[in-house]
Write a protein that binds this DNA or RNA. Structure first.
Length: 136
DNA sequence: GTGATGACGATAT
DNA sequence: TATATCGCCATCA
């Protein structure tokens, strides 16, 4: 194409918002995962900047479902945890989201390709249900 | 164009 | 698991 520029849209923000809106209710995703789906050099930090720049999109973008890799809420004063609990997301005694239960597995490969994004890589299911760990 | 900032990630301890 | 350190990159002043 004449414009093979990485950012077909204005910025990464538009993509990030789009992926963010794909997170189903009752589930959460991490900045790194969103960045991976967006790909194209996107980074977890960029996702954080996008969330901070949501603006009017905050009404249509489930930003509250985006948390850091530790499963903790990086925001404070925005009632993020409160909103997640209202969606059915469970937290542990430490205030961390039960990632092994509510972590979003990412969009379908079909959806990702249709949008020009990348599917989520196979994550190692550590802890949680390690019953099927028989890998060698 | 440069420097500073930031809703982070990964690794090491 | 928590803390400390480094890296990586877009956006803003």
């Amino acid at each position: 194409m004449s414009t093979p520029t990485a950012r077909d849209e204005r910025d990464y923000y538009e993509r990030i918002f789009r992926v963010c809106e794909e997170v189903p209710r009752g589930q959460v995703s991490t900045y790194g995962d969103i960045a991976t789906i967006v790909g194209d050099g996107c980074d977890a930090r960029i996702v954080g900047h996008a969330m901070a720049a949501l603006g009017a999109r905050a009404a249509t973008c489930p930003w509250q479902r985006i948390i850091n890799r530790t499963g903790g809420i990086s925001t404070s004063g925005h009632g993020q945890k409160e909103r997640l609990e209202e969606e059915g997301v469970g937290f542990d005694e430490k205030g961390h989201v039960l990632m092994s239960v509510h972590q979003w597995a990412g969009p379908t490969e079909e959806w990702a390709r249709a949008r020009g994004f990348h599917p989520l890589p196979p994550k190692t299911p550590q802890g949680g249900a390690s019953t099927q760990l028989s890998l060698f």
